[in-house]
Design a protein around this nucleic acid. Structure first.
Lengths: 136, 136
DNA sequence: AAGTTATATCGGAGAATACCGATTTGTATG
DNA sequence: CATACAAATCGGTATTCTCCGATATAACTT
C-alpha cells in the first residue's frame, strides 16, 4: 500500500538509535528482548497522558458527531440534541466531556449555552484521522 | 487561555451557514431547536466511522506507548513486551489491534515479527493530540 | 410566584474493553 | 523428533464506558 523501506527507519524523526541497534547487533542473534537500550524507547508519562485524554474523548461516535457538527460554527445544546437525535441527558454529558477535555468552549446567552470548537487543531486531528482511517 | 473570538466563527472552514443562521434569526427568539437547516450539520457516516476507528485504536495507554516506542524505528513484539512491562498475550493483542487499524505494519524475520509505524501521519496525530492535551 | 424551556447532574443497568493465564501455532536448532 | 523460543488465539473475569430516565438547577415569561 505505501512506500516502506524494507528495513530501517520509517521517517526522519528518529535519532538513529533504532536503526543502529538493529544493524550493530549480530545477524544471527537468538534473543532480542534483553536489551538495556530499550529503556530509551519508553515514552514520557505526561505526553502519553495528554494524548490519551484527547483520544479517549474523541473515541466515541456521538462526541465525534458533535465536533463535526461544530465545524460550521457554534450551536447550542438543544440544536445538537436534534442533530444527534439523542436524549438531552446523553448529549449534555457528552458535551461536558468535550469541554473538560478542552475540545470545545461554551458561551452562555440567556437560557442557551452555545458550544464551539476551542482550537482548530482539533479539526486537523479529525482530518488526519479520517485520512488514516479510510485507507486502512 | 487561548485566542477565542468571543462570537462567530472559530476558523475559516465554515461555509457561513452557522454564522448567518445566528444573525438572521430573531434576537429574542424563544426556541432554537426546531430548525430544518440543522440537517446540513450532520456528518457523513463513513467519515465518522473512519475517524472513530482510528481514535478507538489510540484511546488506550498501552497501544499509545507502543506507537510512541516505534517512533525510533521498528521493534519486535518481545522488545515491546519489555518496554511496556506487560504480559506477552496482552501486548500481542494490542499489536493486532494496531495492525488491523492500519497504524502499524509488520515484517516477519525468522521467528521474530517486527512492527513499525505504517504512516507518519499517525505520528502527526500523536503530536497534535499531545499539544491539544497539555494545555487543556 | 408559578409555569416553561434549556441544561446539568445523578444513579444504575447493560455493553464494550482490557487484562492475563493457558493453550496453540510457527520457526529455528540440537 | 524433541526442545526452545516467539507470537497468536482462546476464555473468563474485572474494569470502564455508554446510555437514558429521573431529578436538580438556571433563566426567562406571564
Amino acid at each position: 500500500m505505501s512506500d516502506l523501506p524494507s528495513s530501517g527507519s520509517t521517517d526522519g524523526t528518529e535519532s538513529a538509535s533504532g536503526t543502529l541497534r538493529r544493524l550493530e547487533s549480530d545477524e544471527a542473534g537468538d534473543s532480542c528482548c534483553d536489551d538495556p537500550i530499550l529503556e530509551t524507547r519508553r515514552a514520557d508519562d505526561e505526553t502519553v497522558a495528554a494524548e490519551l485524554a484527547v483520544f479517549k474523548t474523541l473515541a466515541n461516535e456521538k462526541r465525534l458527531r458533535i465536533v463535526e457538527a461544530l465545524r460550521g460554527g457554534e450551536l447550542c445544546a438543544c440544536e445538537l440534541e436534534a442533530i444527534l437525535d439523542a436524549p438531552q441527558s446523553t448529549v449534555s454529558s457528552h458535551l461536558s466531556r468535550l469541554r473538560e477535555a478542552g475540545i470545545v468552549n461554551t458561551r452562555k446567552e440567556g437560557k442557551w449555552t452555545y458550544y464551539r470548537i476551542a482550537d482548530t487543531a482539533s479539526l486537523q486531528l479529525l482530518d488526519l484521522a479520517a485520512a488514516l482511517g479510510d485507507d486502512s
